[in-house]
Structure formats: C-alpha cells, structure tokens
C-alpha cells in the first residue's frame, strides 16, 4: 500500500538529485534547474503531509497555501536569476561557474 513514507522517500530522492546536480554541475543554467528541482521536492513533502494530516476530514490547506507561496517565490526567483545569468554572460561570454572568479582576488 502507498503510504506517506513512500511520498517522503520520493521527495527526498528528488531533493538529493537536485543537490548532487548543484554540487557537481558547472553550467550555471543547469545549477539553476537543479535548484528548481529541490524546491519542487520540498513541495512534494509539504503536499504529502497536507494530505495525510486531516483537519476535520479534509486535507490541511495551510500546507498547500505554503506550497502556493513557494511556487510564486520560485517563479520570481527564476526570473531574477536568469536576468543575472544573462548579465553575467554578457560580461564573461560564458555560463561556466568557474569563469566567475572576481571575488577570489
């Protein structure tokens, strides 16, 4: 039978995939995609808890409101982040994270 722990394990695996991508990849666009994947994994855990924590026989809609806010903030974050990437590409002609070394002194 599919229980809450199944959903949590899928959510954890998706988060770990995203984390591995953020650590291992050097293309800044793909790092960004992996960040989005981690946010979605957290959303899956929230929706899972929402479904299995019944309030008066209905799912807990506080958690789903939080997911709504997370998705909104993630959309804003993607827009700003991609604008920064475009600005970075204009100055460096590269999207490799190792090309950004100005702060190394």
């Amino acid at each position: 039978m599919i229980s809450l722990s199944h959903y949590l394990v899928v959510s954890g695996m998706l988060f770990a995939l995203g984390l591995a991508g953020v650590i291992a990849r050097r293309n800044i666009l793909i790092v960004y995609m992996c960040l989005e994947m981690m946010l979605s994994a957290a959303n899956l855990a929230l929706v899972g808890f929402s479904r299995f924590h019944l309030v008066n026989g209905l799912p807990d809609y506080t958690a789903q409101s939080l997911v709504f806010f997370t998705i909104t903030v993630a959309a804003a974050e993607v827009a700003v982040g991609l604008a920064i990437i475009v600005a970075l590409f204009r100055s460096k002609q590269s999207v490799d994270v190792e090309s950004v070394t100005k702060l190394q002194g």
Binding site: L8, V9, A16, L19, G21
Partner: peptide, 29 residues
C-alpha cells in the same frame, strides 16, 4: 565535485529513507 555530489546525495537519501520509514509515517495510507 562529481564524487562529492554523489556522496552527499547518497548520504541524504539514506538519512531520509531511515527517517521516513522508521517512524509512524509508514502507517499512514
């Protein structure tokens, strides 16, 4: 970075698997 990424991800999955299956969460269907 690739090796460290894989190691961190595997450790995280093992931890989450242990937490998600050991407590009362598995009984909620």
């Amino acid at each position: 970075p690739i090796i460290s990424g894989i190691v961190v991800a595997v450790l995280l999955v093992v931890q989450i698997f242990a937490v998600a299956t050991s407590t009362g969460l598995a009984g909620k269907t």
